[in-house]
Write a protein that binds this DNA or RNA. Structure first.
Length: 276
DNA sequence: CAGTTCGCCTGGGGGC
DNA sequence: TGCCCCCAGGCGAACT
């Protein structure tokens, strides 16, 4: 499940492998992937657009085209493959093809079909778009500071893990890294933080960035999928302290890792290292 | 405002 | 071996 570190890895890889080709045409095989505009307009408008760059906000990947922003959310299992024309693997999970110059194809593959693509004119302010209007600061945004976190936590009295998963708070954290951040904070995921100190909020900011940066360093986390985007296999799963480790010993204290539901999501924690 | 449920999807695992 | 059922999960929408 691509979260900020995985999307950042995809962005880096796209920049290195694709460079700046022109999209000659697009083929859409599953209409629901295209969130905006309608499929016909999407295909028509994207024709002959050169890719100028690759950006990212939270879990959103952004292709900067000449006249448009192509915004993509990979959701659970979205992946890209870059192949020479004639060697394109057409399986039943391939939903969008971008036919590029240099006789190459960028193929979008998504088993669950949850991914979304949006194509907006560049004249529209990116942050006000339907795709991005409800998300908060990117986890590495300089504007994310202790005061902002303190204000948000004070206004939203919810479990720490639920807050971390709230993209309106900070954009980019998903289920894996929310568990890891709670562990590194030494706080149980269900804890409701009442009147947090600025020092605590600063520590939370540093921990969020430290965990995500370490994951980016390792190319992200690859679990439950054997093939990953653009041939990149993440290595951070080796460093996971709690996520996916139910009934195993905590790497710090040896206590058995527990699994529970928090906010409807599978949540892992060490009852000793993360007291309630 | 916050919490819950549903819909979108499919593969995989458990139970029989 | 095969079939049915449930689960996983990001996120928006609808509802309590």
């Amino acid at each position: 499940m691509p979260e900020l570190p995985e999307v950042e890895t995809v962005r880096n890889t796209l920049a290195h492998q694709l460079g700046h080709p022109t999209i000659l045409s697009a083929t859409v095989l599953w209409d629901n992937i295209i969130a905006y505009p309608d499929v016909a307009s999407f295909c028509e408008q994207i024709e002959n657009q050169t890719i100028l760059g690759y950006e990212r906000i939270g879990k959103y990947l952004i292709f900067v085209l000449q006249d448009y922003h192509l915004i993509i959310h990979l959701r659970m299992e979205g992946k890209f493959f870059y192949e020479p024309q004639g060697q394109v693997v057409m399986d039943k999970h391939t939903h969008v093809l971008f036919h590029l110059t240099q006789e190459t194809t960028l193929r979008y593959h998504d088993v669950r079909k949850f991914g979304k693509m949006y194509l907006y004119p560049k004249s529209w302010e990116l942050r006000k778009s339907v795709a991005l209007q409800n998300i908060g600061f990117d986890a590495f945004d300089a504007q994310l500071d202790a005061l902002y976190i303190q204000t948000y936590l004070s206004r939203h009295k919810r479990a720490l893990k639920t807050i971390l998963l709230d993209q309106g708070f900070v954009a980019g954290i998903g289920n894996i890294y929310a568990d890891e951040i709670c562990f590194h904070m030494g706080v149980a995921p269900t804890t409701i933080i009442v009147q947090p100190s600025l020092a605590f909020c600063e520590e939370l900011k540093v921990t969020i960035q430290k965990v995500l940066a370490a994951a980016i360093e390792q190319g992200g986390t690859t679990i439950r999928s054997y093939t990953s985007s653009l041939g990149v296999h993440g290595r951070f799963q080796v460093y996971l302290m709690v996520h996916g480790r139910a009934k195993q010993a905590c790497r710090v204290c040896g206590t058995i890792i527990e699994k529970e539901k928090v906010g409807g999501r599978g949540t892992y924690s060490c009852p000793h290292c993360q007291p309630k």
